[in-house]
Structure formats: structure tokens, C-alpha cells
């Protein structure tokens, strides 16, 4: 378990972390999610000991680590830009943590071989980082971090420098790896989809504070603030309230509590249809519908429809029925 208690970190007048408290359960894969400058990377680096907090404490596995140097925290750290040791072969990169601990050569060879198999780099032992693709370098960096059997694995935007396809692959792979290895993992990301996909807990950071933490679904369905709601998925405004575009029901005839709107644009995205509307007060509204719902309404530009908030798929169907 990692416990962060009242941590503050200032850079001059800027508060990167402002009295942050957070508990990360053992064996979890927790995502620190937030926009750039929200303090998520600073929080991760503070847990690692790469930054010293101005106030507060960091506890790792029950021991106060606040004043411990990074070497003694039992962490594995993975950087966005891989931080590969350019002058060493893949084998020597992965072996580094073990070789500086003067482990027996045979043990190192065996462990490195095993890890390279786990990360799918078997046969690349003698290559240099410069001869690997970005995805391969990051997998090498993961093997290197896992080699020292860390109690916590810290990943700082690990897939941020990779293209979309490789990113999706590595994400799925990290999820599987975590299911196998069960090491407490903290992942920093600014990508809500990545956080929702890979993490079992998410802490949303904004302006150096934790806005909310919990399970991904809790955060999505019961956001503690408009910021969390807006950061975790698409939002639109209906009658002054922030709602999800798929939680708006449209009907062709007036219904109680529904607002009169005009369709300004209809976009067909396969299964999903996105409609842009404008209310009488000029407020724009965005609605996500299924194709059959849109077909039923014969939604077209210039139509007048009535929109109302109907959270959840079931209640929306009921609302349509009522109409």
C-alpha cells in the first residue's frame, strides 16, 4: 500500500501539489489522471523519491519513505521517453539493477532471459536501444524495472511517445502483465480512455489537488465535480446542467420538462449518430443517439425536437416510449 499524506510541492510561486492525500491499495493498478500541469507526474516522482515534498509524508508498504532516497524505496520506474541506457545492450539494460547488486552471473542470466520472454523481446539480447522501435524500447524499460522485483511499479506516461496502434497493444499487454505479476502499479496519464481501459482505480488530479479517486465506473457515473465529469467523458449543457450527450432523450413532440431545440447538424458515425442542436436561448447542445433512434425521429437539419435529461439507457427508452 502506498499512502500519500498532505503532500505539498512548490516550484517558486507555483504549487505543483497542494496538500495531496491519496491511498493506493496493494496489488491495484491505479491511474493518476489529469491535464498537463495538474501535478500527476510530480506526485508520481514524489512517490519515487525523485522529488522531495515541501510538506507531507509518503508511506510505502507501511514504512515512512518520505526521507528515503529513491535507491532504497524498492520501486521500479518507467519513463515516457524510455530512459534506455543507450550505451548498453538490451541484456545489460535489463541486468543493470541486478548487476549493481552483485548477484551471481548465472542468476542474472536466467532472470534476464525470463524477463525478456515476458516482455516479448526474446532474441533481442544483443541489440542496442538505438536498434529497437519505441514500443520495444518501452518493453525493455519495463523488463529493466521489473528485474529488481520492486514493491511498486511507477509508470510516467509510459505510452505517451508511441503511436496509437502500439499504444493500444501495450496497454492491453500491461493489463495482462499486471494480472499475472500483481505488483502494485501507479500509472500517470492524461488520456481518460487509457485510464478507464487499463486501471482498476483512478485518481483525477487538477491544479495540484486530487479531485476524486475511486473505481473508473464510480467516477464516470458519480463524478464529484464538473471537472471530473468533463475530464472522464464528453459533456454537454442542457438547461444549465452538465450532462452526458448519451443521457439526453429527444422526442418529436413536446413533453413535460423538455426544452425546445432546433437541429443544426446530424453526423452519422456508423452505429452512433451525433446531433448538434441549439436551444431557444441559443445554447448549443450535443446529443448521442443510436442509429435506430435517429431513424425513428427522422432527424434532419432544421427540425424542431424536444430534449430532456434521461440518464441511463433504460430511462431513455422509457422516455421515448412515453413520447
Amino acid at each position: 500500500m502506498i499512502t500519500v499524506q498532505g503532500v505539498t510541492k512548490r516550484y517558486g510561486a507555483f504549487r505543483a501539489l497542494d496538500d495531496v492525500s491519496l491511498t493506493i491499495p496493494d496489488g491495484s493498478l491505479t491511474a493518476l489522471l489529469g491535464p498537463s500541469g495538474s501535478g500527476k507526474s510530480t506526485l508520481l516522482r514524489t512517490i519515487a523519491g525523485l522529488e522531495a515534498p515541501d510538506a507531507g509524508t509518503v508511506t510505502i508498504a507501511g514504512a515512512d519513505a518520505t526521507r528515503l532516497p529513491p535507491q532504497e524505496r524498492g520501486i521500479g520506474f518507467v519513463f515516457q521517453h524510455y530512459a534506455a541506457f543507450k550505451h548498453m545492450s538490451v541484456r545489460d539494460n535489463v541486468a543493470f539493477g541486478l548487476s549493481i547488486r552483485h548477484r551471481p552471473k548465472a542468476e542474472i542470466r536466467e532472470r534476464v532471459g525470463e524477463l525478456l520472454r515476458v516482455v516479448g523481446l526474446d532474441g533481442y539480447q544483443d541489440r542496442y536501444p538505438g536498434q529497437l522501435s519505441g514500443g520495444q524500447r518501452q518493453r525493455m524499460a519495463l523488463a529493466r524495472a521489473l528485474a529488481v522485483e520492486p514493491t511498486v511499479l511507477l509508470l510516467d506516461e509510459p505510452f505517451g511517445a508511441l503511436d496509437a496502434k502500439v499504444r493500444a497493444e501495450l496497454r492491453a499487454w500491461l493489463r495482462r502483465l499486471h494480472d499475472e505479476v500483481h505488483v502494485t502499479t501507479v500509472l500517470v496519464t492524461h488520456d481518460q480512455e487509457e485510464a478507464m481501459d487499463v486501471a482498476d482505480r483512478i485518481a483525477v488530479l487538477n491544479g495540484g489537488r486530487v479531485e476524486q479517486d475511486g473505481r473508473p465506473r464510480e467516477l464516470y457515473e458519480d463524478p464529484a465535480s464538473e471537472f471530473v465529469m468533463g475530464f472522464l467523458g464528453p459533456v454537454t449543457r442542457l438547461g444549465g446542467r452538465l450532462v452526458r450527450p448519451h443521457d439526453v432523450a429527444l422526442s418529436g413532440a413536446p413533453v413535460d420538462g423538455a426544452a425546445e431545440t432546433m437541429v443544426t447538424r446530424v453526423v452519422h458515425l456508423g452505429f452512433e449518430v451525433r446531433a448538434e442542436l441549439v436551444g431557444r436561448d441559443g445554447e448549443p447542445l450535443e446529443v448521442q443517439l443510436t442509429r435506430s433512434e435517429a431513424d425513428e425521429l427522422e432527424l434532419a437539419r432544421g427540425d424542431i425536437v424536444w430534449a430532456r435529461w434521461a440518464p441511463g439507457g433504460v430511462s431513455r427508452a422509457a422516455a421515448l416510449e412515453a413520447a
Binding site: A83, K86, F96
Partner: peptide, 27 residues
């Protein structure tokens, strides 16, 4: 020089001197 290389070495348990000798100096 990529400072993160040194941070990576430190996170893996290398002392400042080991980091200098094994990471900085060869580069």
C-alpha cells in the same frame, strides 16, 4: 545527456558514484 537515464539508474538502486561511472562516463 538524458537526465532520465540517471534517474532510471538511481531508481534501480545505483548510488551516485555508480550512476556516474556506469551511465554518465560511458556516454
Amino acid at each position: 545527456l538524458d537526465r532520465e537515464m540517471e534517474e532510471a539508474a538511481v531508481s534501480l538502486g545505483a548510488s551516485p558514484w555508480t550512476t556516474f561511472r556506469r551511465i554518465v562516463l560511458p556516454n
